[in-house]
Design a protein around this nucleic acid. Structure first.
Length: 830
RNA sequence: GCCCGGGUGGCGGAAUGGCAUACGCGGGGGACUUAAAAUCCCCUGUCCUUAACGGGACGUGUGGGUUCGACUCCCACCCCGGGCACCA
């Protein structure tokens, strides 16, 4: 007997699949397509089992769908631009491309070793000019439509690196490379994508994703977009004729309760207000201090509210009341108008601020039920809707009515209007980095911002660059790159030296897979018409907002450019759990990784796959256990031995179940267990993706086959072959190599890779007898075995005939009998 | 603070409102073996009771509720994990 040898088996079948190009998929109008995709990986150094879980899940789905007859496209590629490559370059003195492509080679090797069924003809790397050419092309189309624009904005700045950092490179308010250096806020010119133009649609289309996306991801996106309906109201500055300040409020009904108008420290009006005032110098010092404060979100949220009065006043347009204008650290320039009216009685932040600075706290909303509010006893703001008081002509209205009428009146009287505001901000895509897509614009003294003409694309990244991690974009130090002629006037001009955020790369790659080598367009719309959208997307919850939102945005942009028809890129989204070791997520930096290649070498890919599927349902986090890995290895060995024992005697026979009437008892048991397993496993594959319980079921089936051994003459070869074939087919998506081997042992010439998922047969799965639970007052008192389908009365009679039941109910009054056919009898007695 | 997810044996986990703990790990015992490994078989929630076979009670974070019957549904709360966070 040959021992199960995963190394040999896996190499053999991987070669076989490659030779028959088993995973190459092309459009076929006669077959239903299925696009399954795992999130584009960043090819970092070490691949561990945390990564492999994601791809294993995707591969099981891809293989299962193929077995169900779908034309499955399952591509893979590399998110190859990014900072780690630049840092590696600095640390090791090698070019980022070299480092990245070296990792890609490793990554591909591991993917192959795990038997992932990718169509490698479609492989892309975002750092190839062949790919980023089309980033630039899309950028230019967006520029034409005013979807890309340049403006000054606040960014994270590390003084030690002397460069801008992405939000994700800010760790605890400090630079990720200088952990003791707080990030500063600076204002610089940057390129933006106008994602806010799609805010309403991005929000509305979430409704359509509720079916196929995890609820929490939909909720997170909804909150992130943060739509809020309110009004914009203009206040005149009392001391400066013609000057006004606009505030945004969702509670215009509380405007008679305003105690002040508060501006963000960065508000453009602040300087004008302070000009000419005696306390100006002092105020400006306070202002500078506020602007220096930590930009960290948690700090912002918990920092004590501070502010100062400017000495100027704003006129409440509703009642002419003069309100002091303050500057407050809690007012955000980025949201609304950068100015708020402070209504301390009905907003908690305003309450804290006004209490601290001893501003009045007038009450203008009384609750419709409960005790009325009084200024003396108010401990916190009352933010509920209610009835208006002390509000001039609006007194007595409900909040809802007041909001409607006051908004209309403000508009009629010309000092305000209703407005929808979003929390979502435009996407800053400029990075002062080398290893990314060059932004294809040129700055000309005469012509200003000039797009690089399409026929001059791609703007290639120069290879020879000094990457120091210091100062500005390294590209600025390459004169051949920077100094160009203006495409319009031919005069001397400078090329943009910033590169694009790598999230641009990953926001449309799933379309490039469909036509990866097109040199005329980003992709052929006809191909997208067949394959797109992605039917099943699989990845980590980490990308719940950024990547998934950007991809949705670019999909809509490409739709409006006429390239795709779908408005949403991912019909279904699956977010898999983390792989933990020692309680924390596997990561190289924490040193708690189990290497993917080591795993494959020690146990084989199938064991690695089966274990990651078996340890927990795929959406949950799982804790790595080496001992459980061994359990899975044992299981596969056991299956292999089972086949070695029986394949020789069945391989010459055709599989067939015959009919039940002539079946022996052992045959019935085997067929029943097999078809029950198939029924439940199919359900697990189709609906819940609970591969852990699918594997458990198959283990049970194997145990049952063991329990029925030896078979002797009681099990005919055709029946046994049927059982073993179904077992093999069920194993195929999860442990594809050993399944192919078992299939061959069973006498098949053609590969399992062409086989279909089997259909279970109800007549074989059906039990002849069932065990019925007999309960007294809901407690189990006996179990009786009866034939299936026994009617309620007979079942009740049989239960009561059981000695234990009879004993329990003797002398008691029967109140009620509950009978569930084929399940239980519950007798309620008193 | 707000929004998700979760809490079941020693561990990972399983259960359309109907036998709680399937399957696997670990542990214990046995078979095979000169021995070990590998393999195969049996046992393995807690407590009480019995010489034993067996019998009984309790048991899915806590407290209530609905129901003939609750891990599952409802209400309140506790704990753990994650996300968002001065959004006017």
């Amino acid at each position: 007997m040959a021992e199960y040898d995963p190394q040999a088996i896996e190499a053999k079948w991987q070669k076989n699949w490659e030779e028959q190009r088993a995973f190459e998929a092309d459009p076929d109008p006669d077959r239903a397509k299925y696009y399954v995709l795992e999130m584009l990986p960043y090819p970092s150094g070490t691949l561990h089992m945390g990564h492999m879980r994601n791809y294993t899940i995707g591969d099981v789905v891809a293989r299962y769908r193929r077995m169900r007859g779908f034309n499955v496209v399952h591509p893979m590629g590399w998110d190859a631009f990014g900072l780690p490559a630049e840092n590696a370059a600095i640390q090791r003195g090698i070019h980022p491309r070299e480092w990245t492509l070296g990792n890609v080679v490793e990554f591909k090797k591991v993917c192959g070793r795990f038997g992932f069924s990718y169509d490698w003809r479609r492989e892309i790397a975002t750092c190839d000019a062949e790919y980023y050419h089309w980033n630039q092309w899309i950028f230019l189309r967006m520029l034409e439509r005013d979807l890309a624009y340049r403006k000054k904005s606040r960014v994270n700045w590390c003084p030690k690196c002397a460069t801008v950092l992405a939000n994700e490179q800010v760790v605890n308010g400090c630079c990720w490379r200088h952990e003791d250096t707080p990030v500063e806020v600076r204002e610089i010119e940057q390129w933006f994508f106008r994602i806010t133009r799609y805010a309403e649609e991005l929000l509305k289309d979430l409704d359509g994703l509720a079916e196929g996306w995890p609820e929490r991801v939909v909720t997170m996106q909804r909150n992130w977009i943060g739509k809020s309906a309110g009004a914009r109201v203009r206040f005149a500055v009392a001391e400066l004729a013609g000057k006004t300040v606009e505030v945004f409020t969702t509670r215009i009904d509380t405007i008679y309760g305003a105690a002040a108008v508060i501006l963000a420290p960065g508000h453009p009006l602040v300087a004008e207000l302070l000009a000419g005032l005696p306390a100006r110098a002092e105020a400006e010092a306070k202002l500078a201090q506020m602007k220096q404060a930590s930009a960290k979100a948690e700090d912002l949220a918990t920092a004590e509210k501070t502010g100062f009065a400017t000495g100027r006043h704003a006129v409440n347009p509703f009642n002419g009341e003069k309100l002091p204008i303050w500057v407050g650290n809690f007012v955000l320039m980025e949201y609304g108008t950068g100015a708020v009216m402070a209504v301390p009685a009905h907003d908690q932040r305003d309450f804290e601020f006004c209490t601290k600075y001893k501003l009045p706290i007038p009450i203008v909303i009384q609750p419709t039920d409960g005790a009325p509010l009084s200024a003396e006893t108010l401990k916190e703001a009352s933010t509920e809707y209610g009835k208006l008081v002390n509000s001039g002509p609006y007194t007595g209205l409900t909040s809802e009515e007041a909001i409607r009428r006051m908004t209309a009146d403000a508009e009629a009287r010309g000092f305000g209007r209703g407005e929808i505001t979003f929390r979502l901000r435009d996407w800053g895509i400029s990075r002062q980095r080398y290893w990314g897509t060059p932004i294809p614009v040129i700055y000309c003294q005469r012509d200003g911002i000039v797009p690089v003409p399409d026929d001059q694309l791609p703007v290639r990244l120069p290879e020879k660059v000094a990457i120091s991690g210091q100062g500005q974009s390294p590209l600025a130090g390459v004169p051949e790159f920077v100094n160009v002629k203006c495409p319009k006037c031919g005069g001397a001009a400078r090329r943009e030296t910033d590169t694009m955020d790598t999230f641009v790369d990953s926001s449309w790659y799933f379309l490039r897979y469909l036509d990866p080598h097109n040199s005329k367009k980003p992709f052929e719309p006809e191909l997208a018409r067949y394959w797109f959208p992605v039917d099943q997307y699989i990845g980590g919850i980490v990308h719940a907002i950024l990547h998934l939102l950007y991809s949705r945005f670019l999909c809509k942009v490409l739709r409006d450019l006429g390239f795709v028809q779908a408005s949403e890129p991912f019909t279904r989204l699956f977010t898999q759990g983390l792989v933990l070791k020692g309680g924390t997520a596997m990561s190289k930096s924490k040193g708690n990784v189990v290497g993917a290649m080591e795993m494959a070498v020690k146990y084989g890919a199938d064991t690695g796959r089966v274990y990651t599927l078996f340890a927990a349902p795929p959406e949950k986090d799982m804790e790595w256990s080496e001992q459980s890995v061994e359990g899975c290895a044992r299981f596969l060995k056991r299956v292999h031995r089972l086949m070695e024992r029986h394949a020789p005697s069945v391989r010459a026979h055709a599989a067939g179940m015959g009919d039940l009437a002539s079946a022996s008892e052992k045959e019935k048991v085997l067929l029943r267990k097999t078809h029950q397993t198939l029924r439940r496993a199919t359900n697990d594959f189709e609906t819940r993706w609970h591969f852990n319980s699918a594997i458990a079921l198959i283990m049970e089936l194997v145990n049952e086959i063991h329990a029925q051994e030896p078979f002797g003459d009681a099990v005919r070869p055709a029946v046994l072959k049927e059982v073993l074939e179904l077992l093999t087919l069920m194993l195929a998506p999860m442990a594809p190599h050993i399944a192919e081997e078992l299939w061959e042992m069973l006498g098949h010439n053609g590969g399992l890779i062409q086989a279909s998922w089997p259909q279970y047969r109800a007549e074989f799965a059906a039990e002849e007898q069932v065990e019925i639970v007999a309960q007294i007052n809901g407690k189990v008192r006996a179990k009786i075995v009866v034939e299936v389908g026994l009617d309620e009365d007979s079942l009740a009679a049989r239960a009561m005939g059981d000695p234990k039941v009879a004993e329990a109910i003797r002398g008691k009054q029967i109140v009620k009998k509950i009978v569930v056919p084929d399940k239980l009898v519950n007798i309620v007695v008193r």
